[in-house]
Design a protein around this nucleic acid. Structure first.
Lengths: 362, 362
DNA sequence: CGTTTTTGAGATAACGTTATCTCAGCGCAA
DNA sequence: TTGCGCTGAGATAACGTTATCTCAAAAACG
């Protein structure tokens, strides 16, 4: 309450708190930090009061700089607006705050490898405690070398990949068993009696697509089902074109597997536009369940990749490496089917699709 | 190339660069910083080479601490996964990086005012250069006082609000003219001949909802149209319930205004489930256009709020306050109609909806 | 040629913390 | 009383930058 002679500019610091409480900066720091060494109860209270009186908010920049214990984590996603990545980002940011008391910085690489590199560097400028790559830009050779060089510099919690298997990038990865995912999607259709299947899958042929396809192929071959594949971009319009070409080649398809939520939207649109009903005429199974899939009409049946849990596992790994917390038991990350309304049983002699004639492929 | 005696731990610093280049730290800093004062070309090159040789990445923490020129901006959104906020976040993060060379930290308040406060504080710990509030948690009295107290501390670029008018919080705001938005949505239906309208709008009655309703009411009253309102949460299931209650009260409704993208999804679902066709039986106009609205079937007709542009304007304001750049000419932010396929003309003697009888309200 | 001005580069302090060191004061056993 | 350990609190240095000051050498001028 003593009148200040000089006008303070900038936010209050520990020095201000110490002066206000009439103690040394060290003591103020000890109290604020809630540190190991004990402080007299009276003093502690006095410092606390002083801190709130001057509205002290600790400076994380200085703290991190001095203590070398980062509280930022970087997350680079392929496309913020795609709920596939959105839900990862949501889970990780939430978990970072509530569980590790860290702050996650989400960067949107916009499916552009160049941007991924840029953000990588920028995040490292802030000395993030770890970096979670969920974009997959590294699936290109020339790019990967630069990324590897850049990330090898990061000395703290390290780099971690989720949703993808990083080819030739030596970092821990957290993602679903994609072969099993593919198999589950296939079996969902097989179980309902479908034997003529169209598959829409991502155009960039990475380990993920390959593994999923392997799973599907196995299941379909075992069951003696026919199928054909369209490689399209991860977007709704691209999927419309893709599903159209599939039906042009194989008009009697009764079941479609959509490689992503965006694709399933496009498939729904095209099917409806061509007078086909979901699921009465064509059943659709999506890969990757998102919350919004419930909002579709009909509700999408999809394989839940548990992206949120893999994201959290990645984060926990980083936190553990930083020594911030022990790696607790993680929940099961088996993929599972979330049944909506987009798959229906096919009975013997079920009606063929509108365009008749011609057998399904392979 | 001289052999190091001690093993370096941590990332390379300016000191390392300076040693490697055989210059002083000051000179190294000048080169790296690209500062005002000129450095001899030869030396400059030598330092550059040394920097890349030791893989130097500047430490933004130290820089910000010392120079007091923040390069972080905070953004708090109501719900990351809602494309309404997602598109704001995308625009702002992109703009921050490419235009102001700042890094935007997106925080998800998850529609929880408590979390908004928490993130506010946390962002300020990192001494963000500015804070963009896009969540609207401050629309509650008790909360606002604490928020005002917290944000008043922030000494730099300041606090700014987008998407909402902040009641009783004295900060600049950037958002659409919501009364005009409401009027435009109404007129889109009126122009197509609709005279019995159902309105779904956000349950929390803030300035935004009020302004939009005012616009709609004006337009409908002028045109002598009948309408009724359902207040629901910003979610698809809530909208299903809301639209059901509207049609229960007024079965002959031919046009519906959806207060958000999520609501329009729910409306589509309910209409389809009850055997009503969009747009043949019922036309739908959404408020707030999102990219994903194009993926719906049929494509949603909606009012584009230009959220991205308002977000960028908010960011530019902060950057200008920080003195990082002059506030350039901003693009027009008039809302405009984006026409999809969800509105159709009503002709004299148009068929009533399936459930018959009972006039629309008011 | 001497003096002033300009230029380029090194030395130093400071940003706000925290880790470490120091030391006074106290209790307790020899 | 002396010696020893313990506890609580202050002093100090350091984290990696940048702003400021200083100063030597080169350039410009009469």
């Amino acid at each position: 309450m003593t009148g200040r002679k000089t006008i303070k500019v900038g936010s209050p610091t520990l020095v201000d708190v110490a002066r206000e409480a009439g103690v040394s900066v060290s003591t103020a720091a000890r109290v604020v930090r809630g540190s190991d060494t004990s402080v007299d109860a009276t003093l502690k209270e006095r410092v606390r009061a002083a801190a709130t009186r001057v509205a002290y908010v600790p400076n994380a920049l200085a703290r991190t700089l001095r203590a070398g214990a980062p509280t930022l984590v970087g997350l680079i996603v392929g496309d913020m607006l795609d709920p596939f990545y959105g839900e990862i980002a949501e889970a990780i940011t939430e978990q970072a705050e509530s569980m590790h008391s860290m702050l996650a910085v989400v960067c949107n690489m916009h499916r552009d490898p160049e941007l991924e590199l840029k953000y990588c560097r920028r995040l490292w400028e802030y000395r993030v405690g770890g970096l979670i790559l969920a974009g997959g830009g590294f699936d290109q050779w020339t790019h990967r070398a630069r990324l590897a060089e850049l990330t090898s510099q990061m000395v703290t919690g390290g780099v971690v990949v989720t949703t993808l298997t990083p080819r030739g990038l030596d970092v821990p990865a957290f993602h679903a068993d994609n072969q099993m995912v593919g198999r589950m999607a296939a079996e969902e259709l097989l179980r309902a009696g479908h034997r003529r299947i169209g598959i829409l899958i991502g155009a960039q042929q990475n380990y993920v697509s390959e593994a999923r396809l392997r799973g599907m192929t196995e299941a379909f071959v075992e069951a003696g089902a026919e199928f054909d594949i369209a490689y399209v971009e991860y977007s709704s319009p691209a999927a419309e074109v893709g599903v159209a070409s599939l039906f042009e080649r194989h008009p009697r398809i009764t079941g479609v597997i959509a490689g992503s939520y965006a694709m399933s939207m496009g498939i729904f649109r095209w099917l409806r536009a061509t007078g086909r009903s979901v699921p009465d005429d064509v059943s659709v199974v999506g890969i990757g369940n998102t919350r919004v899939a419930e909002w579709m009409s009909p509700k999408l049946t999809a394989i839940n990749l548990k992206l949120d849990q893999f994201g959290c596992a990645a984060l926990s790994h980083i936190a553990a490496t930083l020594g911030k917390s022990e790696q607790g038991d993680l929940p099961s990350t088996q993929p599972e089917v979330v049944r909506g309304e987009s798959v229906s049983r096919v009975f013997e002699g079920a009606r063929p699709g509108p365009g008749s004639g011609g057998a399904a492929a392979r």
